[in-house]
Each structure stands twice: as C-alpha cells, then as structure tokens.
Design a protein around this nucleic acid. Structure first.
Lengths: 332, 332
DNA sequence: ATAGAAATTGTTAGCGATAACAATGCTTTC
DNA sequence: GAAAGCATTGTTATCGCTAACAATTTCTAT
C-alpha cells in the first residue's frame, strides 16, 4: 500500500480511502491511485484489515461430514448467496451430531474470526445438554430443537411430510407405512411427525415404521423388514410407503419389486427431496421438492442483518415444501 | 494475550511461547499460563498471527458451482483430509469453467491469504488462453490440460473408462454406444478417449455418441436420440452403451425401458461414479468406483509438502478407478 | 478581499500477534 | 569461588491496514 502511495505521490491513507470507496477523494486522485494499483498489481492484505476492523468478510458454515443430498445442496446454495453478498465461506464439518460436536465446531469457526455462522449440520433430537452458543458472533440455524430460541430458517418439514401423506390418503390408502431417516436427526423426526399428524387427522390408523439412515441401502433393508412382516401375515398389509428421502425410496422400490410387487399397482411409494434422479426412477417418483436456494438466501439475509446491527440473530422462518406427483403413487 | 500475561505475571512473549509449544519454557510457567488461558477463556487472534507469520493454516478450495456427485464428493474428502492436518478450508466456487474464471477464483483465494490452493473445479478442454497461476501460493489441480505442468492428482479417467469399455467388449458386444459428459469438461473428454481407445485396440468399430450434461435428464434424452436412429434403421444397432456417469445412466435406463427394450438382455448399460444409488437401480448398475478419499488425501499431501518447502507444487499422480460389475451388463 | 465552511489530504497511533535480540538466573566446570 | 554456558524470561520492532484527528487546500458568501 505504501508502494502504491509512493508511486502516486499521496499518503497511504488516501490509497486506503480509494480502496474502501470513501467519498472524500477527488476524482483525479482516485483515478491515479486506481491506475497505480493496477500497474503494481497491488492486493490488499486482508489479515491486516481484519486485525484492525475486526471484520473478515467471511462466513462460517458448520456442516455435516457427508455427501448427503440435503447438506450438500444447502452448502451450495449458501455459498452462492454468500458470494453475491461479497462474503467468503469457510467450511467446518462435524462428524457427529451431538451438541458437544456443534459447540466445538462453533468455537473453531469463532476462532477463525468469521463475521457470522450458518449451522446447516443436523441437530440431534435427543441432546442431554443444551446448546450454548458461547460466542457473540451471530448464528443462524437450519434446525432448532423445541424450546430453543435461536434464529432458524428451514423448509417446513412437518407440513411437507404431512402433505405427502395426505396425498396418499386422498388416493384411498388405509395403511401407510413409513421409512424414516435416523431418528437422532431432527429432520427425520419432523418428517415422521408430519406423517403421524396426517394419519391422525384423517382418522387413519398408524402404519408400520422402519428406520433407515438416509442411504439407498438402508431404504432397501427397511422395505424388506416391512415386507417381511407384511407377507408373513403378522403385519398389516400396507399399500403405500412414505420414505423420508428419495435415496431410501430408491432402495425401497428395489426391495418391493424384488418381492414381486408392482409399483404403484400394489404399493405406492413417495419420497422426499426431489433429487435429479427421482424423475427418472422406474416408475418416476412422487416426492417433495425443497427450495434450498430460498432457504439459503433467507438464512443469509437474517445473518447479514444481525452482522450489520451487531445484535445476535433471532426469529424463525420457514419455507414450504412442494409436493411433486409422478407415477409411483396411485389410487389403491 | 496481555491479559493472560498480566494474570500470570509473565510477559506476553512467554504466553506466545506456551501457545506455540516452544521448548524454552519451564514446566511450572507453562502450567500457570495454560491455567490462565483456561480461566480467562483466551483465544488467539488468528488475523494478527496471520499478519505477522504470513501463514493462515487455511487452504483454499476452488470448486465448481454445482451439486454434481464428483465435485461434491471431492470437496467432502478434501475437507476431511484438511481437518486431519489441522487446516481450515475456504471455499470459492466458479460458475463457468473458463480459464478466466479459474484465474479470478485463484486470485480471490490468494487474496484471502490461504497457504495453498486445491482446484477441484472442472477444466475446460478448449481454452483459448493458457492458465497463469499468477501467484506464488502452491496449487494442486485435479485436472490439467495437455501441455500444462501443474501439480495434479486424479483418478485415471481414461484407463477407467477403457476398462469399462473392455468389460463390454469381453461380453461380446460389437457395437458400443457412448453417452458422454459435456465435452467442454476435460473429465468428459478423458472418459470418451478411454472408450475410443478400448474400441480401437480391440478392433471394434466406433459406436454412436450422444453428448449429455451429466444430469439424468440429459442421459434420458441422449439415449432417446441414440435409440431413435437405432430403430429407424439409419443408425447402427448398438447392444451396449457406456455412460460417462451414473446419473446419465439412470436416465438412459429409463429411456431404453420406455422403448420396450430390456436391460441387459437387449442393451447393456455401464455407468461411471458408483454413487450410492447405483447398486439399487433396476437392474443394479455396472459402473466404475472412484476413490475420492484417496485422491483428496494425495492432493493434500502434495500441497502440504509444497507449503512446507516453500516451493510450488509439482508432479502428477493418478489413482486407478475400479470396475464394479453388477446386473446391467451381460453377454450379448 | 476575506472569513468561514467544505472538501481533500496527511500524520500518528494501534489492532494482536511473532521475531530477533537482550537480559536475567542457575548450573556447571575447573 | 569465578568464569563460562545454558535455560528461561523480557523488551522492542514490526507485519499492513484503518480510525481519529490534524492540516491543508479550495470553494462560497458577504
């Protein structure tokens, strides 16, 4: 910076003013400084800037160690939105979903001097200890536990799952099974709650449940368990299954077909996520589309407001999911 | 830091020494300082440290704006490996694959004072201008263009595609079609080259090609184009198709089934990626597994060596892909 | 023409850490 | 017991930038 200043014949402070767009610089000086910056290939030292301003123009994203569709799509959306607002993104993944792991990740990011943090990693439904942010840096979550009052923006998982289940009910299904995600995940429990709520409101008795881990393989195995008790006569003969994500639905479809049953003639299948593949499964999968871009943008908006104002982020917002009806669900 | 020093009654330099594990501190002093750090909840200011050391313990990842399996899996692997080595990761995505975009992304990351950069975004096969790193920061690529001498670690795409094609040849197929990725991507051209090479070496004539964009939808449409000329009698009657990724293979399977043809009885299908879904497609997909963790670890190793030594990263390494034979490919 | 206001530029201090060197205290050795 | 040597601790300068204020120049209004 001093080099640039010397090159132009002004003080370093004037150069600083040009860089930061201060209005109190004459047009002529500004042009000369800009030219010199170009000439010399000068680049600002952001570490020095961060040291004096306390701002880093960097956002921390606390994610989950996985290649699952949800976290991945979410990260992508946030990264795009952050760039639009001129923020860099530093990533910190945790490999378990306990509050302790999140607390540690939060501390790591805070220590990295990020201006704000977005937590898109899953929350554990059953946490022994409550989460203490332990930092003054504003944080926006994508999931909160009941009773917490952190800022949160998410798809309304419960309502979306409910509408998917209602769709099956409207098709005349009386026994609707559920393949849930890992119930340690808040998202999985919310989707299950939506399923239960729809059944309860319609006066339909609760169908059988099998828990998966989001993977196609787990969906395949869960479906096999459900089918096992179905054909053995012990279980109820469900005619539809609501899967907590598309990947498990793919696995379930395979298991159902292998059992000699047709989809949707014998069993209707509904997924959740609307991955790019779901339209091309055989049969094309009825599922729930999530607008991650919107969630990402809203999380970011909230966070940036908090950063600007210096307050911590608050408030809850939710984005509706959208049922996409394809071929895998049909009249009973 | 001065607070800690005052609290213990030593100089700030001694505190610094304790934090950085200098051997020249007495055990008693170290213990007291550590206790004070704990007491006061002191956290190092990394911006200040970066300012004076020039190191940030942060790695830049230049990725591509997408939720595609490859870049996503790669990012995940790198992030895990980086954390193991005590490095943070900052993310910078580009939304086009030109050299200009990469140059800009590189400049952004360099400006963020990262210690090294990993480029996992796709390279454009046809670049007008050559890529100038424009920075002294070590960079490791996952793809390089012919003639470039940057450090690179990747799956041997060509050999893997070749072995997938050879598998089909060994099953007796004489006309093997190819659904390629977007040919602007180096990865897509390498896979196509592998397909061509296998055909040439076996003396099998080149089959028809259709270009997709990696998405299931594009695979579906590409397969329809191939099938159109097949049934109209104008095209050659291919009995196998090698798809440049699993997602397009899913689309292709759907199109083939809709055309009234059976897989693998009428047409064998081979994919590339071994996504979690591929085992559960109907029929289960023969594909090529990529060890992204290994690629990530090796990229990181090279980068860290370069960072330590102060030199720029050099050399090329490749990791073999592994053919996974399932149900979608069979004897003609 | 000239005081006063406004616009522009310069000067100094300090953000929080490490590097380099200086200073102290404690052993060793003869 | 004193000089030399090592282990430990302290002092000062500095990284590159912005904040705060000081100084200068240029305009405006009387």
């Amino acid at each position: 910076m001093f080099d640039v200043a010397r090159h132009v014949g002004v003080s370093h402070q004037t150069v600083s003013r040009v860089i930061n767009g201060s209005p109190n610089v004459s047009a002529a000086t500004r042009a000369k400084v800009l030219a010199a910056i170009e000439d010399l290939g000068y680049q600002q030292n952001l570490a020095a800037k961060a040291l004096v301003t306390g701002r880093t123009q960097t956002l921390g994203v606390l994610s989950f160690d996985s290649t699952l569709y949800g976290p991945t799509a979410m990260l992508h959306s946030i990264q795009v939105a952050a760039r639009e607002h001129g923020y860099r993104v530093v990533l910190n993944s945790v490999d378990e979903i306990t509050n302790a792991a999140i607390t540690e990740g939060l501390a790591n990011l805070a220590n990295s001097h990020v201006d704000g943090i977005l937590v898109i990693g899953p929350r554990s439904a059953a946490s022994a200890t409550s989460l203490d942010l332990g930092t003054r840096i504003p944080v926006v979550f994508r999931e909160v536990l009941d009773g917490e009052s952190f800022a949160v923006v998410d798809i309304d998982q419960r309502a979306a799952a409910k509408s998917a289940t209602e769709h099956l009910i409207s098709l005349g299904h009386k026994v609707i099974a559920h393949i849930s995600g890992p119930l340690a995940w808040v998202t999985a429990t919310r989707r299950q709650e939506g399923w239960l709520e729809a059944l309860a409101e319609a006066g339909v008795s609760t169908g059988p449940v099998a828990e998966g881990d989001w993977s196609p393989k787990s969906g395949y195995e869960a479906a096999q368990r459900l089918l096992g008790s179905r054909t053995s006569g012990k279980g109820v003969a469900f005619t539809a299954v609501f899967c907590a994500n598309d990947a498990m639905a793919f696995g379930a479809i395979k298991a159902i077909r292998e059992a000699g049953l047709a989809i949707p003639q014998d069993i209707s299948v509904v997924g959740f996520d609307d991955t790019a593949e779901s339209e091309f499964s055989i049969p094309a999968l009825t599922t729930v589309r999530q607008d991650f871009d919107l969630v990402g943008a809203q999380m970011l908006d909230r966070l940036l407001i908090a950063i600007e104002s210096g307050d911590s982020a608050v408030g809850a917002a939710s984005v509706p999911g959208q049922l996409v009806i394809r071929e895998s669900s049909a009249q009973i």
